[in-house]
Design a protein around this nucleic acid. Sequence first.
DNA 1: TCAATATTTAACCTTTTTGTTAAGTATTCG
DNA 2: CGAATACTTAACAAAAAGGTTAAATATTGA
Lengths: 125, 125
Amino acid sequence: MVKRETVALDLDAIFAALSHPIRRAMLERLAGGDATVSELARPHGVSLPAISRHLRVLEAAGLLKEEPDGRVRRCQIDAAPLSAAFGWLTRYRVLWEDRFARLAEHLEETRKKERKEERKHAHNR
Amino acid sequence: MVKRETVALDLDAIFAALSHPIRRAMLERLAGGDATVSELARPHGVSLPAISRHLRVLEAAGLLKEEPDGRVRRCQIDAAPLSAAFGWLTRYRVLWEDRFARLAEHLEETRKKERKEERKHAHNR
DNA sequence: TCAATATTTAACCTTTTTGTTAAGTATTCG
DNA sequence: CGAATACTTAACAAAAAGGTTAAATATTGA
């Protein structure tokens, strides 16, 4: 039996990783190209250990690859798990949009009724 | 100044809401149509209070609308915030896929070198 | 009216997350 | 070599997340 590479497709971990603004910002930064840990840390007003752990969260979600380069650590994004998140959203997108359309309709209906009520009350004032 | 409706476009909350398997399952269920709290709770082996709080997480993220209907509470999905998440992912998708392609290339290159080394060593054995 | 049903709130506990400072560990460079 | 640089690990604290049971609330239906 071949030992398959575990491509972390853990949606829990992926969405959780995306739920923190610092981590999203770091991914945005990395979308523009590789960066070192310090470069990634710079814009955020937190300590380096804090950054280090954010990076491990991203790594655990499979979104980040690190490569030691001298005393610097070069980070690069890995899009594969991202596709899993994207895929999950896409799978339900149509159904949701359908729901959404119906909800919008319903709200519009409600608003119409409310306006009617408003006018009635304005009259009786 | 008109008081605008606060359409929760809080990516933190949205992604966090999506990071729990029970909440994702509930959204999947709701994609098929409205449901009551108990119906949503049934498949998951947790207490009703736990479910109730998951629902509030979804609601806080703007993903859920509830409507009391007698002693039952009818739940329906709201896709709007979902689009925000989708949008964020989309915005960086291209860049990420680009990165990914380059990463794949790099790995392929590395593997080639490794194979070369292997052959060399096999020779010298 | 009263019991059953559907759901939430309260009180509590444990685990995870996020951050801090202080102390390592490598690596480079004068 | 020895100081500076770039990080990580350890140890700790506060807050958030996720679950439980027990009690409250509201609605329906006999």
